[in-house]
Nucleic acid binder design. Structure first.
Lengths: 157, 157
DNA sequence: TTTTTAGTTCGGCATTAACCGAACCAACTA
DNA sequence: TAGTTGGTTCGGTTAATGCCGAACTAAAAA
């Protein structure tokens, strides 16, 4: 595990940056998630994570516990081994969708308010664009909801 | 303009928070955008913005210039009046879509890489969820693209 | 019983972000 | 020409973020 290919390192970084933004994680936390996504499903131990991520034990502890709490990662143990091994769960995808749905709903409230403001105004150059955007949000909302449903169905298989 | 209703203030705040996240604006910049969205299309002068937003001239200057540069707002002048009057353009909606499309494309790259990693692995509990998520991203991408096209069509009317 | 392992807690440090105020400037006005 | 208006620039302050190290703990191992 000491030697991780440059290729993989770049991927971990990329994935990290992505989740950092989407899930509002700190850089280190996001990198650890990226690492666990890329790593084999055998999981990585706490020590391995500290080593590969080049971070302190305390920081790793904080990050790992946050990710566990979000259920973005999970851990398991091996017989005759005190260590916990961590691996990515798939819940981060579900989480992202939940977050996104929330954001879209806020957006819909706001755009509806704005559309309403400008309903009876004579000078309104932008109303049409707002309505198109509103339609976009509706479709987006529907897409998210359907995806969440599909994933839920699998989870309760 | 001194007395803005509590109702409107709350709306400005809400809209501000939304755009702060979606467009990566600072709190003040986002609040100013919110203010100009809510304000009448007569526009607000620089002084009015400083007053209502309770910010310093320097901060308002920075924020306004950034918003102008993003074309999220625009200004106009009145005859016999040196002041510039600012109002929201509708370009912030377009901007958000461009940003979102970019983010979605990144997401697609990443999830495809991950799906590929796990293609030939024996132990793969999550592949199905990833494929569903992938499908979601495709639909989302298409929706954004179509919306951008519609808006472009209007712009070049 | 002592030592080691696996991880947690907590105080602190360094960087950055966000905003401010004072000085400044260019254009108009009296 | 002197003063005012409508902003801009820049150095500095404040607060929050993100990470670290050292000390600690609980359980297992020796």
């Amino acid at each position: 595990m000491n030697q991780i290919s440059t290729e993989k390192k770049k991927q971990i970084e990329t994935i990290g940056l992505y989740f950092e933004k989407e899930l509002d994680l700190t850089p280190l936390t996001a990198r650890i998630l990226g690492l666990l996504i890329v790593a084999s499903s055998d999981g990585l131990s706490f020590d391995q994570i500290t080593e590969v991520s080049c971070a302190s034990k305390s920081s790793v502890s904080t990050s790992v516990n946050l990710l566990l709490q979000l259920k973005a990662i999970e851990y398991f143990t091996k017989p005759n081994d005190r260590k916990r091994y961590f691996r990515a769960s798939s819940n981060h995808l579900y989480l992202m969708l939940i977050d996104e749905l929330d954001e879209v709903n806020k957006g819909i409230d706001i755009i509806d308010t704005i559309i309403d403001y400008n309903k009876e105004k004579k000078v309104e150059r932008y109303q049409q664009i707002r309505l198109i955007f509103r339609e976009y949000l509706s479709k987006h909302q529907k897409n998210i909801q359907e995806t969440l449903d599909k994933i839920s169905a699998i989870k309760n298989n």
